[in-house]
């Protein structure tokens, strides 16, 4: 098979390549990065770059993010064999079997991801970079971190954290009690409905009327 031959070529040649970020920074990447980033791996296979002094442009990624990704890949270069290379990783049926847990992040990863915060917008940036480069381990760590951050937060805090502009729910049942729009509109009936809903112990449906 052609891909296997190419992969063996990549594995057998411990050579470095150069990549340039969005802001013009140039980084050296080695096997650890190439093998973990599917995008770079496919790019090298398809383009067949002979001159390794010419940097590969990665216009979607900032220099800081690219550097962080390279650091992450260097640390996890030995985890490569333990990660299954599944094609249908996004298979929902298979996901349903798996327990939905986000607390299985290693200590090093926790410390690594701490430098990125949602407030500064860098956590989403590193996730975007991981998604673009297709580094599954980094993407999983980022997603799990966000999932952990959401846990136990109320809707306003989640909205603030995710930088979500609040879409007015109209007369829907999911109108939050402390929402600005509800206060402005002075729709008391809706507020009481919402209060009733929030008092229910069991989760309530949120119907979208508008």
């Amino acid at each position: 098979m052609a891909t296997n031959v190419e992969e063996t070529y990549l594995y057998s040649s411990p050579t470095t390549f150069k990549v340039s970020s969005k802001d013009g920074e140039i980084f050296d990447i080695d096997d650890s990065f190439i093998n973990q980033s599917k995008t770079i791996k496919n790019m090298l296979n398809v383009l067949d770059i002979a001159d390794n002094h010419m940097p590969i442009p990665l216009q979607n990624i900032k220099g800081t993010m690219l550097n962080a990704a390279i650091v992450f890949c260097k640390y996890h270069k030995n985890d490569l064999l333990s990660i299954p290379d599944d094609e249908d990783e996004d298979d929902f049926e298979r996901d349903a079997y798996e327990p939905r847990r986000s607390d299985d992040i290693s200590e090093w990863d926790k410390e690594f991801i701490k430098q990125f915060t949602v407030e500064e917008g860098t956590l989403f940036d590193i996730i975007m970079a991981a998604n673009y480069l297709d580094i599954k381990a980094l993407l999983a760590v980022g997603c799990k971190t966000i999932a952990n951050m959401v846990r136990g937060k109320n809707s306003d805090q989640v909205r603030q954290m995710f930088n979500i502009s609040y879409d007015p729910p109209g007369e829907g049942l999911n109108t939050p009690r402390n929402s600005v729009t509800s206060k402005e509109s002075g729709d008391n009936q809706l507020l009481t409905t919402q209060e009733k809903e929030s008092r229910c112990k069991t989760p309530s449906p949120e119907l979208m009327y508008d």
Partner: peptide
């Protein structure tokens, strides 16, 4: 960036861990 600026697949991936 906001949560909804992320690609849809990434959004679903984040929600998958909840």
């Amino acid at each position: 960036l906001s949560f909804f600026d992320l690609p849809l697949l990434v959004q679903e991936k984040i929600l998958k861990f909840m």
